[in-house]
Amino acid sequence: MKTITFTINGEKETRDVSESKTLLNFIREDLHLTGTKEGCGEGECGACTIILNGKAVHSCMMLAVEIDGCDVETVEVMSKDGNLDILQEKFIEHNAVQCGFCTPGMLMSARALLLSNPNPTVDEIKTALEGNICRCTGYKQIIEAVSDAAKGGKYE
């Protein structure tokens, strides 16, 4: 066991965690933030994507102890006071959601993109979301949703 201190969705936390526990399992089982999903456990599908210090990462490929001192965001951060984030609104408006299992990871990758690049091109959106597999939507509406959310370049 190791004691770690980190910021999760804007709140500072200190927890004891087993050295062998993945960050994904820590988020889901210890923090009970089940919006983050496991699709493969091998860093290939993107369902477990979270934002670590501003960058989108696969939480299944990291150990929980690695977030000591870090800033962590999961999908739950996006609708903090009951109000939806513009990306979430646009995902709904453009029907970018079907089964919804890839959606939290997809939103995290999109959020990380817009935070670092507020005016992405379609190719840049595709590159940012390339690691997020969606088996339902055909991706078209996801690109439309992200492009629409980025309009005006003021995402935060």
Partner: peptide, 15 residues
Amino acid sequence: KRVDAKAKVTGAAQY
């Protein structure tokens, strides 16, 4: 709009 979309974009939807 999908009636289940809000649950799915917020992470509230339970699998």
